[in-house]
């Protein structure tokens, strides 16, 4: 199916990336090329095939329920864009 400019804008919004009209147009052209490549997948019959999500056919390893991490706030917040009173600050969130 053909990708539209609306698709590009919708996806850019979902991904929280600002795109102006020129960028959306350019992206549409390139994504259309890429999806041309991707559409080759539709040629193969995949019925009955189990999807492969991982490179290994293994099961999850668990960790014991123990506390191993202490307070690292100072170190972590030294590289934060904006903090106050130990909190990360962001533009006002409206619920």
């Amino acid at each position: 199916m053909a990708l539209t400019l609306d698709d590009v804008r919708r996806v850019a919004h979902l991904a929280r990336i600002a795109v102006d009209d020129a960028e959306a147009g350019a992206a549409l052209g390139q994504l259309t090329r890429v999806f041309g490549l991707i559409e080759q997948m539709q040629a193969v019959d995949v019925s009955g095939i189990e999807p492969m999500a991982h490179a290994q056919d293994l099961v999850l390893r668990l960790r014991p329920d123990v506390v191993t991490e202490g307070d690292q706030r100072e170190r972590f917040q030294a590289i934060a864009p904006e903090v106050d009173a130990g909190l990360y600050l962001v533009p006002k969130v409206i619920e």
């Binding site: 960790r63 329920d65 123990v66 506390v67 191993t68 991490e69 307070d71 706030r73 972590f76 917040q77 009173a85 130990g86 909190l87 990360y88």
Partner: peptide
């Protein structure tokens, strides 16, 4: 649990923010 679901940080309630 005493620690978080995917990390070894404590789950205790009421600690100073982000500690």
């Amino acid at each position: 649990t005493v620690s978080k679901i995917f990390s070894g940080a404590p789950t205790a309630f009421g600690a100073a923010p982000n500690t």
